[in-house]
Design a binder for these strands. Structure first.
Lengths: 237, 237
DNA sequence: CTCATGTCGATACACTGTATTTTGACGAGA
DNA sequence: TCTCGTCAAAATACAGTGTATCGACATGAG
């Protein structure tokens, strides 16, 4: 018995439904982050007692699940181009954009399986483009690998973004900006390689960094799609 | 001013220091997950009033940061083999193992930049093995890409593991096990590709799935290390 | 011995998610 | 029309949270 199973209660004169609740929660989270979402505040925003919400959701985690699925509706592209590579690329970028619009999404993404209707629709659209291309196992591995990449990359990007924002207008990368602590540790000489990166490394745009890594991973997938499961093929040691 | 900057207070006859606090918090989290960690419970486990802790940490988030860095000590391998590919592979697997031992780590990983001494030591060891191999930009991209992959993959693995555990001894993959909701949605016929996967897909061991995707990503990195930054090289469209 | 310092514990506050109880409105039967 | 039962909604209650504040006490200096 999960959220998705529970039917909405009979529509009474009450001007309240799950959609409005979720919308209020999303608005709250957009404004003040996930921790600004409390059942009391959501209820207040709807001019309703806190306990009213429990007729529509049965726990706060369920509300979070619903919020995530709400945003998956933004992620699902309106029309699909034909190429699997383009589909995965677009999915990754749309997910990233959604996380930039709703930073709290980065905290939730991957935290629990996304099983809402919109999330499933996204998965369906993704899997569909591989139809007949190779065996199911390879397709699963491909999709999961790309997903793991962009999920992790987005999470780190948002984390860095927040850190920079918190430490006040980051000068360069996190290493330079993150206060006296890192500098002091680097000064100990215990981290020469790291020090070189902090000193000589270039500041790179987050989006191109994301896109570059994504292309690498897509290349890897492409290589494996050419040679279906079973055959291993190392390029270099 | 972060946790790492704050010196430990002068060692009084008080049998309390940051190490003991962090150890208690980690133990608590190991037993009951992150949400079982409350400052009051940590303090209680050390026979101390809750406010005592604020002499050593200044916020709960800092405690979490310290917990993460504590586990990074487990992740740092005792001795490094020479090959960059092996180093990244081992790092990924050790991180995964650490997350299986301390599932709460998966909730924290990537959530904020890891800047503790142990985390930096891990980064240092990772970067060092690339010394002189290519330009710094490529190395950075390589490390971050692999990191993004295994971070995301681990997070999903733990999420699925919990879901299976919660839904009581999962029969197969999450799709089958996740209650009537998914089954009902699949029955609508709106998700034919997904349905095929649920029906025909094989159950795959989480570890080999992790290792396989990791190998793909490592291959992609290897291909780029061979051809330094700037040159793009698509294998397939 | 007195006094200042500064550490520690207790208390306090505002807030959380959620269970339980109270209220009140509305429809059915007399 | 009046009464009563039912059921949704609101109010209250509870156990817990992170953290600020304050009072007491022990320990060191003069």
């Amino acid at each position: 018995m999960t959220v998705w199973d529970r039917p909405e209660p009979p529509t009474r004169p009450a001007p309240l439904d799950r959609e409005r609740i979720v919308a209020a929660a999303v608005a709250l989270a957009d404004e003040g982050g996930l921790e600004a979402v409390s059942l009391r505040k959501v209820a207040a925003r709807l001019d309703v007692g806190p306990m009213r919400l429990y007729g529509y959701i049965s726990t706060k985690e369920e509300l979070f699940d619903l919020m995530v699925d709400e945003v998956y509706a933004e992620i699902l592209p309106e029309e699909q181009p034909g190429d699997w590579r383009e589909v995965l690329r677009v999915l990754a970028h749309r997910t990233r954009q959604a996380c930039l619009r709703h930073e709290w999404l980065a905290d939730l993404l991957g935290g629990r399986p996304a099983l809402g209707p919109n999330a499933l629709a996204v998965t369906e659209a993704t899997l569909a483009v591989f139809d007949g291309l190779t065996d199911l196992d390879t397709v699963m591995r491909a999709v999961e690998t790309v997903n793991a990449y962009f999920t992790g990359a987005i999470r780190r990007e948002i984390a860095n973004l927040r850190a920079e924002r918190a430490s006040g207008l980051s000068e360069r990368e996190w290493q330079h900006a993150s206060g006296p602590h890192v500098r002091r540790l680097l000064a100990t000489g215990r981290f020469p390689a790291l020090a070189r990166f902090v000193h000589d490394g270039n500041e790179v745009d987050a989006e191109v960094s994301f896109a570059t890594g994504l292309d690498w991973v897509l290349d890897a997938v492409a290589a494996r799609l050419a040679r279906p499961a079973g055959v291993t093929f190392r390029i270099s040691g």
